[in-house]
């Protein structure tokens, strides 16, 4: 007979884990909960007298397939927003009703069946499985081998991107920059007047104006830059003996809450 406690543990793990397919938002969370579902199913296989299949389930599904899913999630971008707009009207309720209907139908049919399960059953050891696999199902194994090779080659072809233009060398890139009239030298480094983690402070040119190009474009998009004006004023003040005492009793700028957004608001 089958262990009852194992069944209930497996049932709770798998059903709650698979419900995340319907309710969880992030793809990585869903993938990890499906991994737990696969592990629960492996335990169920072992409990049903199929230890070989249980191990194969762990190796193939949790080890290979779900990790492949995670890789593709990372490749595609984890923060792909899922649009919740319905293109077909009422599709959500139709889909839920269909899934509930299929569950009701299957369970009501299965509930009527009573099968006698014998206590003496052949355990799914690797030896027994191999005996059946390589005697009765040799041809199927050969066909599966062909299928696996075809799938591997197909995946290679589908993801292969041919290079249409020759690759540019470093010399060619530099020559193209000169021809386009761009600045031939490197951009100045940010944070020349470093007061804190000063990647957000642009460098100043000889006239004292900030060089916007010296700050990373990413920080500009996030509005986390400062224009360096406050630091320029401080420098001018120290040069001027009349204002030399002023920075001392003025609150030190670095003691501010260094929220980058606030700093950006002040400077504009």
């Amino acid at each position: 007979m089958v262990n009852e406690a194992l069944f209930w543990i497996v049932a709770i793990i798998t059903v709650t884990g698979s419900l995340s397919l319907l309710f969880a938002r992030k793809g990585a969370h869903i993938a990890m909960s499906i991994v737990t579902v696969m592990c629960g199913l492996a335990a169920a296989y072992v409990g049903l007298g199929a230890p070989f299949l249980g191990v194969v389930q762990i190796v193939v599904y949790t080890g290979a397939v779900m990790m492949l899913f995670l890789f593709v999630l990372m490749l595609v971008g984890v923060d792909q927003r899922e649009s919740l707009k319905e293109t077909i009207k009422g599709q959500r309720w139709i889909a839920l009703a269909g899934a509930g209907g299929i569950a009701l139908l299957l369970i009501s049919v299965i509930g009527r069946v009573s099968l006698y399960s014998p206590d003496d059953f052949t355990d799914g050891n690797p030896e027994e499985i191999a005996l059946v696999l390589f005697s009765d199902y040799v041809l199927v194994i050969e066909v599966l081998a062909a299928l696996l090779i075809t799938a591997a080659v197909g995946a290679l072809i589908l993801t292969h991107v041919p290079r249409l233009v020759p690759k540019h060398s470093q010399v060619e890139i530099a020559e193209a920059r000169i021809l386009a009239g761009a600045d031939p030298v490197n951009k100045p480094m940010p944070g020349v007047y470093a007061r804190h983690n000063a990647l957000d402070v642009p460098a100043l040119d000889p006239e004292g104006k900030p060089i916007e190009d010296s700050v990373s474009r990413v920080l500009e998009i996030r509005h986390q830059t400062q224009d360096g004006a406050e630091f320029r004023h401080q420098l001018e003040d120290t040069d001027n003996p009349d204002h030399a005492a002023q920075p001392a009793d003025a609150p030190p700028r670095d003691s501010h809450d260094r929220n980058p957004r606030q700093g950006e608001g002040e400077s504009r």
């Binding site: 798998t14 899934a99 509930g100 299929i102 299957l106």
Partner: peptide, 11 residues
């Protein structure tokens, strides 16, 4: 249990 999991997957 398999039937329940199947319907969740189809949903």
């Amino acid at each position: 249990l398999a039937a329940i999991l199947f319907s969740i997957g189809s949903a």
